[in-house]
């Protein structure tokens, strides 16, 4: 009885929180929507002093940074997971996993500082850039930060493929590499997919580290695929400008709208995750 009461109260409270968060975000960004309609979402100019609140540059920046991070971290993470789960002896595997778990635990501001002091100079000197603060820097840093998530969860998924599945494949004379493509990865795919979606969520919401390396220029890269230019993400904009905006102003409302956008995308992602988990 008590247990049931406790469970239902907690469930109710947590779902209430979600509603509250959305309500708050919508309510505080309402003045902006009221004044400018909804078209500012696809506006490409962000000049708070002229009341231009185009969301597109930061949206593009966010998508780019996350995509770059995934592009780098997914192959690396899955490869590391395969190595760990299938090839390494138990001790090495333990060491590698432990280091990955440590990596996941390092606060993101530390990654940001590391990026500033190591990654940026490196990019500047290697790629001959005016500034290392680019989308590429943000992508690389984010990749490093989501690598542990992808690797650890994918490894679990690969190891969860049952011994009898492997033996059934072996019995048909299927070699290890064919087994990898035809048994292990397909079986582990739901888990890898969830890992990827979780990592995407983390990369999208990451603020401090990205803010330190992305350059914070509100401009759509030109051409749009040029990731060697400074840019802005939704989170880095909020992190950078929130302190300057006076509460209740349009600027403030626009920043909260950035938050709303992020929350919507995040909810979309978790709906995706849930669908996949149920399907798996």
């Amino acid at each position: 009885m008590i247990l049931r009461w406790w469970l239902s109260t907690s469930a109710l409270l947590s779902s209430l929180t979600i509603v509250l968060v959305f309500g708050f975000l919508l309510q505080s960004s309402w003045p902006l929507i009221q004044q400018q309609g909804i078209t500012f979402i696809i506006g490409d100019e962000w000049y708070p002093f002229e009341s231009l609140y185009g969301m597109l540059p930061a949206l593009v920046g966010t998508v780019w940074a996350v995509a770059l991070a995934l592009l780098i971290a997914l192959p690396c993470g899955v490869a590391a997971a395969i190595l760990c789960a299938e090839l390494l002896p138990a001790q090495l595997r333990g060491a590698m996993r432990f280091s990955m778990e440590l990596m996941a635990g390092v606060p993101s501001v530390v990654y940001g500082l590391l990026g500033m002091w190591v990654l940026l100079p490196l990019l500047e000197s290697q790629l001959d850039l005016l500034t290392g603060r680019t989308l590429l820097a943000a992508g690389l840093l984010l990749a490093l930060m989501i690598l542990p998530t992808i690797m650890v969860l994918s490894e679990d998924a690969i190891r969860a493929v049952s011994q009898s599945q492997r033996e059934a494949a072996k019995n048909l004379g299927i070699g290890w590499d064919a087994m990898l493509w035809r048994v292990l990865l397909p079986q582990a795919w739901p888990g890898i997919r969830v890992a990827t979606l979780l990592a995407t969520g983390r990369a999208m919401g990451e603020t401090v580290a990205v803010m330190l390396v992305v350059g914070s220029i509100d401009r759509i890269p030109d051409p749009f695929y040029n990731f060697l230019q400074p840019a802005q993400t939704l989170t880095s904009r909020i992190g950078r400008e929130m302190a300057e905006a006076s509460i209740g102003s349009l600027h403030w409302a626009a920043l909260l709208f950035c938050g709303l956008l992020l929350a919507i995308i995040a909810i979309g992602l978790s709906l995706l995750i849930q669908r996949k988990v149920v399907a798996a």
Binding site: S164, A168, N171, L172, G173, I174, R182, V183, P186
Partner: peptide, 26 residues
């Protein structure tokens, strides 16, 4: 060797694909 010496295990285990794909799996 395992293609030469087929083994049908005690516990039947089918792969999570179609019937046709299972027969062709090897």
């Amino acid at each position: 060797l395992r293609r030469h010496v087929g083994l049908i295990a005690q516990k039947p285990l089918v792969f999570n694909t179609s019937i046709r794909a299972n027969v062709c799996f090897g």
